[in-house]
Simulated scan of single mutants.
Amino acid sequence: MTIEELITLYPNGKIQQAKGTNNALSLPIDGKYFVLDKALLRETEIHLLKSLFPENEYFVDQNKHPWFGYLFDRTPLNIEGTFRIIQFQLKKPKAFLQSEWETSIEEIFPNLDDFFFISENDGALIEKYEKNYYKLEELQSIFLTLDADFDSSTTAFIGNFFPANEHLPALFKEEQQIFQTEADPIRGKSTFSLPDVVLHYFTKDAMNQSQIVQTFAKQLVLTSEIQQIILALWRNQGNISSTSKDLYMHRNTLHYRLEKFYEQTGLSLKRMDDLVFCYLLITK
């Protein structure tokens, strides 16, 4: 997105040399700042704009990390192959052994082409496609093990494999938006990919704009308990046994809650269509 496009979308914004106050969102672009009053923005807009215009607290040496320049500044990169980008947010303890953590990452990922932090807690792994690439479940285990070893907490978005061509930086930008938007709503999963969030990400605006959905949501009273049941059922693809284990709830008790909900609403959480609808209602 160019500064001209920003001005078109946000005519109340100002271009200035320095950051704005704490009440303003300051977006770095072309050596200056585009400053917007946060009171005029929704929280989702703020997150999205921050992901599109990240302020790099780290100096990244582009001679050592040419992928950084390629992805963020569209600097030409003479490389061939198919790659995926694993974005991560790392919550560190006070005494974090960062160099040891980075060494572990390099040892774990044999097909790693580049790896860098772009801020205090955010970074990216660029992995070349090989037949032995890690699947989502394996990556989740890897990050959980690292968190246990280093007393950290990692949230990771596993990007798709794409050819390294002129389109990849734009695809990465969209994956950044998805990660920033869905990291909180995903709930219960610290490592996820596009299929995990595609339904929610691409339908939430339509759900929010539908008068039918808004009216239905107001009429449908969802207690915190039934919301937890809906989320657990969604994570377990509607499997009752797995859901009851997740919730530490007896299988018969869960059946009773589901039947009660059906009597009250006419929605059966045992049917995937009804479960999808209820999931979207509570995550919109």
Rank of each mutant, 00 (worst) to 15 (best):
E5R: 07
E5G: 05
I15V: 15
Q17I: 11
Q17Y: 11
L25W: 03
I29P: 07
G31A: 02
A39C: 10
E43Y: 04
E45G: 04
I46Y: 03
I46L: 03
H47Y: 12
K50E: 10
S51L: 00
F53M: 10
E57Q: 03
Y58M: 12
V60F: 02
Q62G: 07
Q62F: 09
L71F: 11
L71C: 05
P76S: 03
I79R: 10
E80L: 10
T82N: 14
K92E: 02
K94P: 04
E102A: 01
E106C: 09
I108E: 12
N111D: 15
E120G: 12
E120F: 00
D122S: 00
I126E: 09
K128G: 09
K128M: 06
E130R: 11
K131Q: 11
Y134C: 05
S141E: 14
L146E: 05
D149Q: 14
D149R: 14
S153H: 09
P163N: 08
A164L: 11
P169D: 03
A170D: 15
K173G: 11
E175V: 07
E175Y: 07
E175N: 13
Q176R: 11
Q177H: 05
Q180V: 01
G188P: 03
T191G: 03
S193P: 04
L194R: 09
Y201R: 02
K204S: 13
D205S: 14
L220E: 08
L222M: 11
L222W: 04
Q228M: 06
I229G: 01
I230C: 13
A232N: 05
N239M: 09
N239Q: 11
L247Q: 06
N252G: 15
T253C: 11
T253V: 15
L258P: 15
F261H: 08
Q264S: 04
L267A: 04
L267Y: 14
D273P: 07
Y279G: 06
L280G: 10
K284C: 10
